[in-house]
């Protein structure tokens, strides 16, 4: 479903701040794969997700989604294939627009937007039912501005929006990192449910090793702009946090990153 081949990306090339963020990353996800991505700060996790989403062009390499080569497409043209939830709850929704309008915008992701109504009556009832399932009390606030919602409510709404128009690929970029533990658990559970219900191919970046092990069928760890660990299937199911750490020090040749991963 997703095929990343040897992508490289350097930021601020030629300056003192030059940073090789991606150094030849290759990854293939099969249809329905739920892949968790871990790694220390600056390892390239979010950079890889942004490369796939098209936030900026990569320096070399290729990316294709569901057989379509998207390497040279701008962000908005990749949107038909990709659903996204960002780390910052502010990024995924339009704060000055209603919950209803946000959902309607997302339902038209990747389609031509013409002069027919932006929100139809039929949609309204459909969204109401969907929001009811979220169980956050949002179903009675369809016309409230999204700016009034809490971070957790926004992330839940963004998740719903990302899955309204079934994407070929769902990108979750530390989408629970800014939430309190209880809300984070709830949003994570919701993510699991939505991924399972629609059988979505998913990449989820997380800082939490336990979450990375508990969710999905595949786990990759990044270090210094590369994928250094890739486990899946039975092997991943049996994985524990100490084992993962041990694996990591073996691959990276040091244990300095242990603290980074455990503490963050």
């Amino acid at each position: 479903m997703l095929e990343i081949k040897e992508i490289w990306k350097t930021f601020n090339a030629g300056t003192v701040n030059e940073k090789q963020a991606l150094r030849g990353v290759s990854l293939t996800l099969n249809d329905g794969d739920f892949c968790t991505v871990i790694g220390g700060n600056g390892a390239g996790k979010s950079t890889m997700l942004n490369a796939v989403a098209g936030t900026w062009p990569v320096d070399s390499g290729s990316i294709s989604i569901g057989g379509t080569n998207v390497t040279h497409l701008p962000e908005y043209k990749r949107a038909p294939y990709i659903g996204r939830v960002f780390q910052d709850p502010m990024l995924g929704t339009a704060p000055t627009m209603q919950i209803l309008e946000n959902l309607a915008l997302a339902a038209r992701r990747g389609q031509r937007r013409g002069l027919s109504w932006g929100v139809t009556k039929a949609e309204k009832t459909r969204y109401q039912e969907m929001l009811q399932k979220l169980d956050l009390g949002l179903e009675d606030r369809l016309t409230s501005k999204v700016g009034l919602l809490s971070g957790g409510q926004r992330q839940a709404l963004t998740l719903l929006m990302a899955s309204l128009q079934k994407p070929k690929l769902l990108l979750l970029d530390e989408h629970t990192a800014a939430l309190d533990p209880k809300t984070a658990a709830k949003v994570l559970e919701l993510s699991d449910r939505i991924v399972a219900e629609s059988h979505l191919t998913t990449m989820m970046v997380t800082h939490n090793m336990k979450d990375a092990i508990a969710h999905g069928n595949r786990l990759i760890m990044m270090y210094d702009g590369r994928i250094v660990i890739d486990v899946s299937g039975e092997e991943k199911k049996k994985l524990t946090v100490p084992q993962l750490l041990e694996l990591f020090s073996k691959v990276s040749g040091s244990d300095e990153a242990d603290d980074k991963l455990l503490l963050s």
């Binding site: 962000e75 908005y76 996204r84 995924g92 339009a94 704060p95």
Partner: peptide, 11 residues
């Protein structure tokens, strides 16, 4: 309202 969101929705 939010350019990032708009682009993510294919606008």
């Amino acid at each position: 309202s939010n350019q990032n969101m708009a682009r993510a929705q294919g606008i």
